[in-house]
């Protein structure tokens, strides 16, 4: 359930929504942290749900003493109205038995808010790639038919690579085994994508193959890649300048 932080609910009509999928190396979450802190976005509300494991902390994006003591929760919505951009940050793992419910909640919130498009930032296990996926860039995208109607050309111009479908039974030539979409380690990414396809939502997944470790560089790669499409920043975000912003959210919420 979306709960606005002010008395008046924000208008998110026609905004672009960017949200992470809690996935390998927390790359999506780190990338979202980077976007929120770089664009100085302001919090407009919370997603209050039993699907996420409760956590609380002080302001992860604090820049001075005054704003340090501000409570932050597992799922919050930030906006940059001038860019027509809304961002949902998820800081906690999803309760195991409730991932389906969480997907439904997100899909119905996206519909109710009237976002023009949704971008999911995600990641997938690098070690589970097949031969074709190992070639070239580790970045991939997926787009629902509804999004392709509006953005097919833009995506084509960017020269992005679509996430390859992999064989259901590698090594076997089964005539009727269709290659299928597989996002190992991607959490709810695949579920959200297929839900959005069937619900006719304009949604794209932008993901990166990675391994667990220091995933900050992966987050920069993902944000700069996204920036090529959405043009949120004039210059690519640089590793050294923005390093501090990643100190809190995802890195320390891994519960490990």
């Amino acid at each position: 359930m979306f709960v606005p932080s002010d008395n008046s609910p924000p208008s998110l009509e026609d905004f672009t929504l960017v949200m992470p999928a809690v996935a390998v190396g927390n790359v999506g979450q780190l990338a979202v942290d980077l976007i929120v802190s770089t664009l100085n976005m302001s919090r407009v509300g919370f997603i209050h749900t039993d699907c996420l494991i409760p956590m609380a902390g002080n302001n992860p994006y604090s820049t001075c003493k005054e704003d340090a003591q501000e409570l932050h929760t597992p799922a919050e919505v930030y906006v940059a109205p001038e860019l027509k951009l809304a961002v949902l940050q998820i800081r906690a793992p999803i309760v195991q038995t409730k991932s389906k419910k969480f997907r439904q909640l997100i899909v119905s919130w996206i519909k109710a808010s009237g976002f023009s498009r949704t971008v999911i930032l995600s990641s997938s296990h690098a070690y589970q790639r097949d031969d074709q996926q190992m070639k070239g860039t580790p970045l991939r995208y997926l787009a629902t038919p509804s999004l392709l109607k509006a953005s097919a050309n833009a995506l084509k111009e960017l020269g992005w690579r679509e996430m390859e479908r992999v064989a259901s039974f590698p090594g076997l030539t089964e005539a009727n085994a269709e290659p299928r979409l597989c996002i190992p380690g991607g959490g709810i990414t695949k579920g959200l994508y297929t839900d959005s396809c069937s619900e006719d939502l304009p949604l794209a997944v932008v993901l990166l193959f990675c391994s667990e470790g220091d995933n900050i560089p992966d987050a920069f790669a993902l944000v700069n890649h996204l920036n090529d499409w959405l043009h949120l920043l004039d210059d690519p975000v640089s590793d050294t300048l923005q390093f501090y912003c990643c100190s809190f959210t995802s890195r320390d919420l891994k519960f490990d």
């Binding site: 409760p54 902390g57 002080n58 929760t73």
Partner: peptide, 22 residues
Amino acid sequence: QSLEQPNIITGLPAAVLNHCQV
């Protein structure tokens, strides 16, 4: 003193904080 970054609170206190914040 206030809880410093990057510490977080989990469990029941966090659930209560979340509820009371919203």
